[in-house]
Design a binder for these strands. Structure first.
Length: 757
DNA sequence: GTAGTCACTATTTGA
DNA sequence: TAGTGACTAC
């Protein structure tokens, strides 16, 4: 362990205000950190400084929003203080609370091995509840119900409080959904029975634990953690802030809490974040010392000036002025294209030009858009120009079907009450447990108010179902035992083998199924890595590593795709503005700057929402270090229609002197108009057809002429050969040439084929 | 169980 | 337009 008087060279790397923010380690501190102001540096050096001053690392709790931010922070602390850095409790809100709940869950009526329900599980659960309640799924729209429940949780409103809350009930009644509070109550109940928590619950139950304070557990953690840091505080919701207060505000707490944030970069109010927390912090911690980091080390003068101009149009902000010492740099370039296709083409050719002229590597270039759907045109042109690219967002590894299936088995083995996992795999691989049997099970469990697993023994199934059920029961029982006794890798290997999933895919024997098997093997490798690693989740005792399967499952539930991103690849990056927060690139393209797109048409109705769009634009342009290009199109295809929009009002908020004079100035007619629909259905030539057949030439042949061995054309699958057919000429087995799947069974009556030769 | 059809919908997204 | 979920008919 380092001695306190060790060198503090790192302080020399900080400016005066940064240094104050780093060295004022006692008492409440608020750091308002503009973009590029060295926020992460302050945060990490502050932690290093705390530890250098003699505080044991495990007394420091640092909370972030993304795993990536947490990881980066840890790595940077390690550079300053060495390997003891990994004793710091640094992680996302969810992962840290998950760790604590894993130890304390029994105090609030949950098992240690609780499962974490992901979004799909929640969807399925809400579906089941609305169905059994006989509610119309068109009225009780799944996503709406879930977001209402989530909002209630994030604002600490219980089902009972919900039912008595005029605002919530008023809105629900107005939308003809007065039963949401009942769904909410059932939802909580079902999760409890299943020993499951959704993402919001990790926060909610953390709150309940500290609030209800069984066995005086609050004192334990107030005793344990002496120094608190919260990153991106502007993105916290009410619940998160209340938890922070419970941690820091008690009698035995020293209230050494530092929050870091930027009200101008708050872009998540749509999911419950509230800037009020920043304002409230000053009231709750009146002795707070505030530091404003206003010097920007990232961007050149033109970019910083533009950012200031844009954000000054917002009402209500903490006053500050971002400035930079860096050079003037290039002016901001505007690209005005006629169509979205032209926009894509010009951005791609500009990228080539920049790479040549300024020698910018691909990894230092990013295209930022408001909606993910915009990425397609850019992909096409980048591909055409042979520029390698990668898109952020999309299906993560853990969301793939085969991985979810395997994980469902693993989940069931550590917590057999996990109904969602059970429903997923009870008949996968197929073992003859059909819908009616599952329905029977659901009903019984509902009646007895138990889990489906516990109901299995109580039902008189038909002979066939009973046999299948016994098989399933044996598999899971054996798996449960392994999960108890062995480490994650050993248990998982056994369970996966026992489940028969790999055999099922092997039997399919297609390219696709081979890929799925590869993915399952990759998962097994991942589990091996987890078991061998010494960075596994900390148990009760920091030196005692928890290598159990349930620990593994809880860890991966909180991971996302971005977490396993390989950074050394040579590619440019395409991502939404939201996803770009916290990142920086030498050259940034912000595209689609049109009214109704950016700002989004969804945000036109209220000034508050428009301000959030403006903050989003502010975040977008401040990602750029040297080169910033803003582009818009006169017309673009949206939902299959050609739509004309004025260029974005945000462009007019940037002064001419910061803009490239070679670009022509903008004349817009008026804001706030709905998009003009120009024409419909002209999009035919835009995208290459995904199928091979030419629809124009397609003439289906009469069924009677079709024979085994013929080469035929299918409208969607293209040419193929008929391998076999039943006598009545109803069903044909066809091998298509162009499709990666081997044989398809086609009903001739419906599918229509054209004989080719 | 599966292929095909129909109707519907359409920000942003972390864990 | 494109993707999805529900439904249907074998």
């Amino acid at each position: 362990m380092e001695s306190p008087e060790q060198n503090t060279d790192y302080l020399d790397e900080l400016n005066k205000i940064q240094r104050q923010a780093v060295t004022t380690i006692n008492g409440p501190v608020m750091v308002i950190a503009g973009p590029g102001s060295g926020k992460t540096r302050v945060l990490t050096y502050r932690i290093a400084h705390i530890i250098k001053s003699g505080v044991p690392p495990w007394q420091v709790l640092a909370l972030t929003f993304t795993n990536k931010a947490a990881k980066e922070m840890k790595e940077r602390i390690e550079k300053v203080i060495g390997p003891s850095a990994n004793k710091v409790w640094a992680g996302t809100f969810h992962s840290v609370f998950c760790k604590i709940l894993r130890i304390e869950a029994p105090k609030i009526g949950y098992p240690n091995d609780f499962t974490i329900y992901d979004t799909d599980d929640c969807k399925s659960l809400v579906n089941e509840i609305t169905k059994t309640m006989g509610l119309d799924p068109k009225v009780y729209i799944n996503s709406v119900v879930r977001s209402r429940i989530s909002a209630a949780k994030s604002n600490l409103i219980s089902p009972k409080a919900y039912a008595n809350n005029e605002d919530y009930m008023g809105l629900d009644t107005m939308n003809k959904r007065p039963m949401i509070h009942v769904i909410y109550e059932k939802y909580l109940n079902k999760c409890k029975k299943a020993g499951a928590m959704d993402f919001d619950d990790l926060l909610l139950h953390m709150f309940r634990l500290l609030h209800m304070n069984p066995d005086n557990v609050r004192a334990k953690y107030q005793e344990k953690f002496k120094y608190f840091l919260v990153d991106e505080f502007q993105d916290t919701n009410v619940l998160q802030y209340e938890i922070l207060k419970l941690f820091t505000n008690g009698a035995s707490s020293t209230r050494n809490v530092c929050i870091v944030g930027d009200d101008a970069q708050s872009i998540y109010s749509f999911r419950g974040a509230t800037i009020d927390n920043i304002l409230q912090f000053g009231k709750d911690y009146p002795q707070v010392k505030t530091f404003k980091l206003e010097q920007n080390y990232r961007s050149t003068k033109h970019i910083v000036a533009a950012a200031n101009q844009v954000i000054s149009n917002n009402a209500n902000q903490i006053p500050k002025k971002i400035w930079t010492d860096l050079e003037e740099g290039n002016k901001i370039k505007l690209v005005r294209a006629m169509t979205d296709v032209e926009e894509g083409r010009r951005v791609a050719s500009d990228i080539i030009e920049q790479k040549n002229r300024y020698n910018i590597p691909n990894t230092e270039i990013a295209i930022l858009y408001r909606t993910n759907a915009q990425s397609r045109v850019f992909e096409e042109h980048l591909r055409r120009q042979n520029i390698p690219y990668r898109i952020y967002g999309g299906l993560s590894f853990y969301q793939r079907k085969e991985i979810k299936d395997v994980i469902a088995y693993l989940r069931l083995s550590t917590n057999s009450n996990d109904d969602e996992a059970l429903k997923r795999v009870i008949n996968y691989p197929k073992r003859g447990i059909g819908n009616s049997t599952v329905a029977l099970l659901t009903k019984q469990a509902d009646q007895d108010n138990t889990s489906m697993w516990d109901s299995i023994g109580l039902i008189n199934f038909t002979a066939r179902a009973s046999k299948s059920m016994k098989l399933f029961y044996t598999i899971v029982s054996a798996s449960k035992e392994k999960a108890q006794k062995q480490d994650a890798f050993e248990a998982a290997s056994y369970i996966i083998k026992k489940s028969g999933i790999i055999e099922a895919y092997k039997a399919e024997n297609t390219l696709e199924s081979k890929g799925r098997i590869d993915n399952i093997n990759a998962l097994i490798d991942g589990i091996k890595e987890f078991t061998d690693s010494d960075e596994v989740a900390l148990g009760e005792d920091e030196n005692n590593l928890d290598r159990s399967l349930s620990s593994f499952l809880q860890t991966i539930s909180l991971m996302t795709q971005a977490d396993k991103e390989s950074e050394d690849d040579d590619h440019i990056t395409l991502l939404s503005v939201h996803a770009a927060k916290g990142l920086e690139y030498r050259s940034v393209f912000v595209v689609g700057l049109e009214e109704n797109l950016f700002p989004s048409f969804m945000s036109m109705s209220s000034p508050q929402q428009l301000d959030e769009e403006r903050r989003l634009f502010y975040v977008a342009i401040t990602r750029a270090k040297e080169l910033l290009t803003l582009s818009c199109a006169n017309s673009r295809y949206q939902y299959g229609n050609l739509v004309e929009n004025d260029s974005s009002r945000f462009l007019e908020e940037i002064s001419e002197e910061n803009l490239d004079s070679s670009a022509f100035s903008f004349k817009r007619k008026s804001f706030g108009k709905t998009p003009r629909k120009v024409s419909a259905g002209l999009g035919k030539a835009r995208n290459k057809p995904t199928h091979i057949a030419e629809p124009e030439n397609f003439v289906p042949s009469p069924i009677k002429d079709i024979e085994v061995g013929m080469r035929v054309l299918h409208k969607r699958f293209g040419p193929g050969k008929i391998l076999s057919m039943d006598e009545k000429k109803k069903l044909a087995t066809i091998k298509f040439e162009s499709v990666n799947s081997p044989e398809k069974r086609i009903l001739l009556q419906y599918a229509r084929l054209q004989i080719l030769d």
